[in-house]
Amino acid sequence: MKIAVVGATGGTGRKVIERALVLGHEVIAVARRPEAVSPAKGLTVRKGDVLDQHSMLNAITGAEVVISCIGPPSNLSPESAAKSLGNIRAGILTIAANFSPGRVMSEGIPNIISACQRTGVKRIVMQSGINLSNGKELSLINGLAVRLMRSIFWKAIQDKSMAEQALIQSGLDWVIVRASVLQYAEGTLNYTAGPLARIQPLGALPFADCADCLVRAATSEPEWTRKIVNVGR
């Protein structure tokens, strides 16, 4: 399958590319800075800005499915996190990004949707966060944790919620993947995923495991179509 990965230079996006290539898929990496994407067999790199609808149209042309990994920028690369800075600084910068998320998702996702509709792409998978849940499917304690996060990161919730609603109303074969807290760590492929899955919102999940779930949603889980999937520990 030919997969366009939007947000290819982020923590999840890089891992989605790696996982999709390992599984034998062709990948189009879409990034504002194409030079930041390492070349690989089966990989095509295209310049694309989610806030520019025309560039997204060109970027995903020829894809069969789109995976969106866009989100509030933390200005921290995976390489930086791996070099002694560790998950503490990564977490701090991610938290800061969620306090001031801008409108990357609420404006970017509609542009991706429009590009899909105009190029004939039927399936789109969007990475979101478990703090978009109302917590009712989780345990009492985890539900309280989600509601606390919603009150703290309300700006990011608002931005992502607008993006989710745009996708739900798009008419495409969408899947929304709501991930728990993510971390730079080795993937295990040992995680819980599915509609209404009871996960731990604060149980850190490696980006690689979230990426595997996104690739599954795009290629091998037809029963997830037009559903919201939780992924975490």
Rank of each mutant, 00 (worst) to 15 (best):
P222G: 09
I70L: 01
A197Y: 04
S84W: 11
V6F: 07
W154Q: 07
I152M: 07
A185G: 12
L140Q: 09
A4Y: 02
N58S: 13
P201C: 04
S80N: 00
E79K: 13
P101V: 03
N58R: 06
A197V: 04
W224S: 07
L189H: 15
A40V: 03
L202D: 04
P206Y: 05
S74F: 09
I109E: 09
N134G: 13
N111G: 05
Q165G: 14
L144R: 10
P34L: 10
A211T: 11
L23T: 12
G24K: 07
A82E: 13
A8F: 08
G11N: 10
T9M: 02
Q127G: 08
Q158S: 15
G129S: 15
S77K: 10
I109H: 06
P201D: 05
T61H: 06
T12N: 09
L21H: 05
D49S: 09
I152K: 09
S220V: 01
N230I: 04
K122W: 02
L43Y: 07
S180C: 14
V231Y: 04
G232N: 06
A211S: 13
I152V: 15
L85W: 03
N87K: 13
V121N: 02
A40C: 05
R32Q: 12
D209H: 06
R216A: 11
L182Q: 13
T44V: 05
A59Q: 03
M162N: 09
E186V: 05
H54E: 14
I70F: 07
I92G: 05
N134D: 15
K41P: 09
Q183L: 10
R46C: 00
G232D: 04
A96H: 07
V231G: 03
R123K: 15
P101F: 10
G7W: 07
V121T: 11
L138P: 06
A217P: 09
H25M: 08
A81N: 01
S139P: 02
T61R: 15
L214H: 01
M105C: 15
R123A: 05
G120C: 09
E223N: 09
G48D: 00
E26P: 01
I152R: 12
A115D: 08
F99I: 11
L172E: 12
L23Q: 14
L93T: 11
L189E: 11
Q200N: 15
G48Q: 04
R226A: 11
H54S: 14
A193R: 04
A8S: 13
G86I: 06
G203I: 11
N142I: 03
P110Q: 13
I124Q: 12
V66D: 11
G135Q: 05
D212N: 14
I70K: 02
P78S: 12
Q117K: 15
K41E: 15
Q183H: 03
L189N: 14
R103E: 10
N75P: 01
E221W: 01
R118C: 03
S106N: 01
L144E: 08
A40H: 12
E64H: 12
M105L: 14
E79Y: 00
N58A: 07
T219L: 12
E223Q: 14
V181P: 00
G135L: 06
C116I: 00
T94K: 03
G86Y: 05
E221M: 15
V229Q: 08
C213M: 10
